[in-house]
């Protein structure tokens, strides 16, 4: 996944300024930066939530993502949410499409992986905040043909028990050869998970490299870590 000189602005505020990044298959790329630096805006542009104003994106057709604030189908059950996410389809096909045993089995496998088996038929609205975060991650993993996974702060609000679980899930996606782009504020997670990191500040890439290279960069320390 490559982007070339992406620009986006909200009114007079330049949210992204000539952002060019490259994410390799089978690697986890981290995107870090202070609040308001343009990280979520970049993911929103890459997933067509926002229209890019300038620049070029070489992006796979099939991707999955999570949102900074979980955007879930609150009146569907966990199982229904995962079934919905598996594969998009046209309205005509969907009218005659009833979930097959294979599709249900595949969805239940992911529910088991996120350890929500006893909530399979619970409506999402009735889950706790942490459980909803897990559902959102599981939903993104349910997309059968996704080549790219965008994760916007997937660890925010997760318990100490769920954090290693989600780490393992992300590493499994990496092993499958997917492109994984993750936005995260926890530097320990960035160090342990990411192969490569981009640092954004005020809509510009101010540093890139391995996690250690970036975190030791003087400009990053000043802009982001306040050191």
């Amino acid at each position: 996944m490559k982007t070339y000189n992406i620009n986006h602005h909200f009114g007079g505020i330049q949210a992204l300024n000539d952002v060019s990044i490259f994410c390799e298959e089978g690697k986890i790329t981290g995107l870090i930066g202070p609040n308001g630096s343009g990280k979520s805006t970049l993911v929103n542009v890459l997933t067509n939530v926002l229209h890019r104003m300038h620049g070029k994106v070489e992006n796979g057709k099939h991707f999955a993502r999570t949102f900074q604030d979980a955007k879930l189908w609150s009146n569907l059950t966990v199982l229904e949410s995962f079934l919905m996410a598996q594969k998009s389809e046209s309205w005509l096909y969907s009218i005659f499409h009833f979930s097959s045993l294979e599709e249900i089995k595949s969805a239940k496998e992911i529910i088991e992986r996120i350890e929500l088996t006893h909530h399979t038929n619970t409506k999402v609205r009735n889950l706790s905040y942490g459980q909803r975060k897990l559902v959102e991650i599981g939903r993104a993993l349910s997309v059968t043909n996704s080549q790219i996974l965008y994760l916007d702060e997937p660890f925010a609000g997760l318990s100490d028990i769920s954090t290693p679980l989600v780490k393992d899930l992300i590493l499994e996606e990496k092993k499958k050869g997917k492109v994984v782009l993750i936005i995260e504020h926890d530097m320990n997670i960035i160090r342990t998970l990411c192969d490569y990191v981009y640092v954004l500040d005020a809509g510009k890439v101010i540093a890139e490299g391995t996690p250690d290279e970036c975190l030791n960069n003087k400009e990053v320390k000043e802009a982001y870590l306040g050191l």
Partner: peptide
């Protein structure tokens, strides 16, 4: 059907 799930997802 899947259509029923999708329209509810749209609503949510």
């Amino acid at each position: 059907s899947r259509f029923g799930l999708i329209i509810q997802a749209i609503r949510d």
